Amino acid sequence: MLTIDFDRFPIAAGHRVLDFGCGQGRHAYAAYRRGGRVLALDLDGAVLKEVRDMFGAMAYVGEAPPGASAHAVHGDGAALPFPDNAFDRIMAAEVLEHVPDDDAVLGELARVLAPGGLLAVTVPRWLPERICWALSREYHEVEGGHVRVYRRRVLRKLLREHGLTPIGSHHAHALHMPYWWLKCAVGPSRETRLVRRYHEFLCWDIERGNWASRTADRLLNPVIGKSLVLYAVKPA
């Protein structure tokens, strides 16, 4: 399930790509398949091992084109272990809402992005996320949980303050939002039959889906899309 739109965020063979806060690696894998020279960075060592294993499996079965490379590395977003202008593309998907000092992290991302390079940031959308917070304190008051909710104008302002120029945005994953509202309403740690059935529907949609579910998601994204996706460029 990709949140970043790679038609708006093109990755070509040889592009140096950083997946910051890679998590399970979904966007890193997509960048690798497109021929990027990918570094997937995270603080979670167990997650990084899984990502390394998947990179190895992808290379073994030939999923990545010749010249592509992929590595998983440990690193802190407030002090990235890379030189200035090191990457042509940087992805930060569903990360900034977790970090205590988002200003420091954005400063580091801007520093290691090369002039002319693109940054894609995704965060929970303000109104749907605020509804989750209103329905359940348990949803976000957990270790590693969300520490803030962004409005689009605030995130755009932060990017500009670090010398990046916003160039576009959209919303994603509208069909996922009702699932989280249900989870928050009954309690995130509880699983009712309705929650379980909706989760099964989402798994079906991710794995197969059809024109009806994809059309519904696209039409509902401007209204209840779960994620805000914002693209920016570092001026040359």
Rank of each mutant, 00 (worst) to 15 (best):
M1H: 09
L2H: 14
T3H: 14
F6I: 03
A12T: 12
A13H: 11
H15R: 08
F20T: 02
G21Y: 00
G21F: 01
G23A: 12
R26C: 07
H27A: 02
A30W: 04
Y32L: 15
Y32Q: 07
R34H: 08
G35D: 05
G36C: 04
V38R: 00
A40T: 03
A40R: 02
L41P: 00
G45A: 13
K49R: 14
V51W: 09
V51Q: 07
V51Y: 08
D53E: 15
D53S: 11
M54F: 12
G56P: 10
A57L: 15
A59Q: 12
A59I: 04
Y60G: 11
G62T: 05
G67M: 11
A70W: 00
A72D: 05
V73R: 14
H74E: 11
D76N: 14
A79K: 13
P81M: 03
P83D: 10
P83M: 07
P83W: 06
N85Y: 06
N85M: 03
N85H: 12
D88R: 04
D88P: 02
I90W: 04
I90L: 14
A92D: 01
A93Q: 09
E94F: 04
V95R: 00
V95A: 00
V95S: 00
P100Y: 05
P100Q: 10
D102E: 14
A104I: 01
V105E: 00
V105S: 00
G107T: 07
E108S: 08
A110S: 15
R111Q: 05
V112N: 02
P115M: 06
P115Y: 03
G116V: 04
G117I: 00
P124V: 01
R125E: 14
W126V: 10
P128R: 04
P128M: 08
E129R: 01
E129D: 15
I131N: 01
C132G: 05
A134P: 03
S136H: 07
R137F: 10
E138F: 09
H140I: 09
V142T: 15
V142C: 13
E143D: 10
G144K: 09
H146Y: 08
R148E: 10
V149N: 09
R153H: 12
R153N: 15
R153L: 10
L155H: 03
R156N: 12
L158W: 05
L158E: 14
L159H: 01
L159P: 00
R160K: 13
L164M: 05
G168P: 05
G168W: 02
S169G: 11
S169D: 14
H171S: 15
A172R: 15
A174D: 06
L175D: 12
W180Q: 09
C184V: 04
C184D: 15
C184E: 13
A185M: 11
G187M: 04
R190M: 12
E191L: 11
E191Y: 06
R193T: 14
R197T: 08
Y198P: 09
Y198T: 03
H199A: 14
E200C: 08
W204P: 07
D205L: 05
D205G: 05
I206F: 10
R208F: 09
R208S: 06
N210A: 07
N210Q: 05
R214S: 10
D217M: 02
R218D: 03
L220Q: 01
V223R: 02
V223H: 06
I224G: 02
G225I: 02
K226Q: 12
K226C: 03
L228H: 11
L230F: 07
A232P: 04
V233Y: 04
A236F: 09
